[in-house]
Amino acid sequence: MHLFWIDFGTGLATAAVVALAATGLTLQFGITNYINFAYGDFMGLGALLTFALNNQAFHLNFWIAAPIAAILVGVFAVIANQLLLAPFARRFSNPALTMIVTFGLSLFMANVATVIWTGNTLFFRMPISVDKKVGPFLWSPDVMIVMGFAVLVMVMIHLLLKTTRLGKMMRALSDNTSLALTSGIDVRQITNVTWFMSGLLAGLGGIALAVEEANLTVTSAESYLFVIFAAVILGGIGSVYGAMLGALAIGLLTETAPLYINAGYKLDVGFFIVIVLLLFRPQGLVPRLGRS
């Protein structure tokens, strides 16, 4: 029982990481209709740029380096879309073809990252944060900050989408692109904003992952990609609230799984869920109105 609650607590921390990343992935999917397979590399880039700013250049405090790095990933996402993905998406009527381009981008980013940051395990330059007992859970103060931050970000995304003009335009675009266009929405501009937010959230997710794991390598975020996919698909791909719920479910499942199966397989739980869902319920578990 005791072990279960500790794993449950770790599951909540993982859910925070997955929620940050999954909302970013699903927002972008909602408007482009193809999955970005370089998303794991976007996440990794956030953590690696934080490492660079915190440990290699400038030696910024971690809590200052992290938001700068996340913003840089957002900018990178906009540029990657403008220069690489959007031109292909305009050419191909089938979004699956652009998805293949994102595979290429992923390989490219992974290789460049390995050249720059090697395959070694890297550590942020920040005070060691010791696990504390909080009720039945065991969390370090840094992980609690990450969880609190993730909740804050989810609330902000909710407010953005439901109450602001920008958020409504993003939803309209995700609902029906050509109707959005003829209703007067500058589709290209909103698409860029969405890519920025997607990159920003990927970066934050990658950084949060490194904080939770207390270290990073150039591949650690990539290995989480299927966990993120699982959360997104579970919630109904393109649905932001679904992704939040999916993240919670997947976070708890992957972290409590080692109680029943070999811990080495915990990330494969995500992979397994993706396969089962795609076979039996590709539209996700959260009902959503048909997109057009």
Binding site: R171, N176, L289
Partner: peptide, 8 residues
């Protein structure tokens, strides 16, 4: 066709 934003 598809003349409203169905999810809104």
């Amino acid at each position: 066709v598809q003349n409203v934003f169905v999810s809104m």
